[in-house]
Amino acid sequence: MEFAKKRVSAQIGKRNKLIFYTLMMALPIIQFIIFWIFVNINSILLAFRTWDFDRGDYVWNGLKTFGNVVNLFKEAPFMLSAIKNSVIVYLIGLVLGTPLSLIFSFYLYKKKILSGLFKTILFLPHILSALIMVLLYKYMVDRAIPAVHEMITGSAMKGLIANTDTRLYAILFYNVWTGFGTSTMMYLGAMSGISDSVVEAAELDGITPLQELWYITIPLIWPTFTTFVVVGFVGLFTGQMNLYNFYGDDAPYALYTFGYYLYKAAKEAAPLPQNYPDIAALGLCFTAIAAPCTLLLRKMLDKFGPKTV
């Protein structure tokens, strides 16, 4: 009797676990099916089709749509800017943002002066919506800074975004500034996982903070570092440098990135079925470039990165 009760109880427990698991997994799986599998399959198929105005439907078009992509690269006025800006954003993030994040994370990790306050300040931009942050930033650089400049020097100056010579740098600064918090927090999280005994042993051996960062910390958080670098590389084709938040649909060509163009093109294509195939083909071309490069980059980072064992 007791055994039967235990068995029923175990079955109920198993069933409840199954319900719990199903509920936990249902939403992400549905989301994955709709927004990843379905969208991507549809997008791949669209790249080989064209809109037939007489039939009011898509028809197979072979590889002709990819010819339009080649023309887009040859003729679209913003492509040069898009290539240049997308690379600049990635490189600035990699060369400037990443080392700064690492150093700052290390500072916070070592719990130096005001590290708690800095942590809060750094994460503050992520509490506010990106649109509000952009609005605040625009007022800061296009109103406050010129006003302060005029107060001090007596001469007028254009805002940093209003001025066509400085706007790219102003927007790049915003991106580094607001992106800084996320990467710093992630690195800090990884650093917190480093065993205290390892650090203490090194300190007993007389290691300097710089040596600790270079020989212990970075090798031990290398997987996190690798993830950021690889994800950043993928962002080369998708990152829009917050341009939509700054300009909406009206960003100047000189500031275009691939990500902004793709986002805007997809948005504007929404009611026009004839526009989708070109964008789908462009996306596929980007994937064809990005996917092997990403895998290669990952492999290289794994191969040439520091070894911890």
Partner: peptide, 8 residues
């Protein structure tokens, strides 16, 4: 003055 490209 603010018509001259001022983002705000």
């Amino acid at each position: 003055s603010l018509s001259n490209n001022n983002s705000t």
